[in-house]
Amino acid sequence: MPDPVLQVEDLCVSFTSGGVTADVVRDLSMRLDGGRTLAVVGESGSGKTITGRAIMRLLPRGASARGRIVVAGREMLSADERELRRARGSDVAMVFQDSMSALSPYLDIGAHIAQAVRLHDPSVTRRAARARAVEMLDRVGIPGPADAVRRFPHEFSGGMRQRAVIAMALVNRPALLIADEPTTALDVTVQAQILALLRELQQEYGMAMLLISHDFGVVGSAADDVLVLYAGRQAEYGSLRDIFDHPAHPYTAGLRAATPRLDARLDTGGERTRLRAIPGAPTSLRDAGPGCAFAPRCGLADQVGERCVVEAPLPTVRPTSEGGGLHLAACHLDRLPATQEVAR
């Protein structure tokens, strides 16, 4: 097996405020090889962004990470400032959800990309860096790139801006791209274009991609493997097929059943189908008790009983479909009942 581009072991992230320290992410592990895409799925507050930021050591004030993070052979948690600077941008780059706020309002698009180039290799001249910017804008499909480099972020549409952000992230050909909800703010048609572009560039560059999303639709069309987060913990991990066809965690199955599908009504003969909603609202790790964080919303907790409320389940190995890799689920139930599995 080749060395993975990204390896995370038992990552915990905690926030300290007012003398109180609380975990918001706990015991996350993942492994991602070059050329592959791992989707991190979860609802708001589940810790997706914090996880992505921890990998780049870009945590906000007051946050600290424990565990082990290796990116392209470099230990990120023990790296010093200089090493980090070298890693950021060239080993690992990031695309943000809100492309407007991810770009400086005071610099034109070309300056952003040129800056990325020169931070990575100071020997490149300004002119050469801007030339690279033009090339890169062309590569991500921005029409009239020679003209576009001189535009400012606010003069671009949302889709164009996200293309520019992608150009900026990929200009140094990082081994790992962390894309934090890269299409959430975009129209469906634009969303599809951006996803296609990311997939295409990933293949061309052979890079690994950590795709953060709350949308199973996006995940289904882009991921190889999926990590489902609930309240800062890993609920389920597996290949896309295992997660979609044989979910082993009630939350995963519930999320799938709650996600509308465009083809859902074709097979019902016109009778209106309803989505099966998960009762209640998502919690965060801070508010979760000692047991399974999903227990208050889980329809199967009754079947298990007391254990769900007092003991947090650890990820255990689950059966995989043929060709599937590792499949883990953190649930006290060994098997989901069939009705749960067939979501609709």
Binding site: L58, P60, G89, S101, A102, Q115, A116
Partner: peptide, 26 residues
């Protein structure tokens, strides 16, 4: 200093000094 575009700049590998200098513009 906590704005996304400066986080993004750090993510590109900029040093704290460079980021601070840029923040002054805002």
């Amino acid at each position: 200093l906590s704005a996304d575009h400066l986080v993004a700049m750090t993510a590109r590998g900029a040093s704290t000094r460079q980021v601070n200098r840029h923040a002054v513009r805002g």
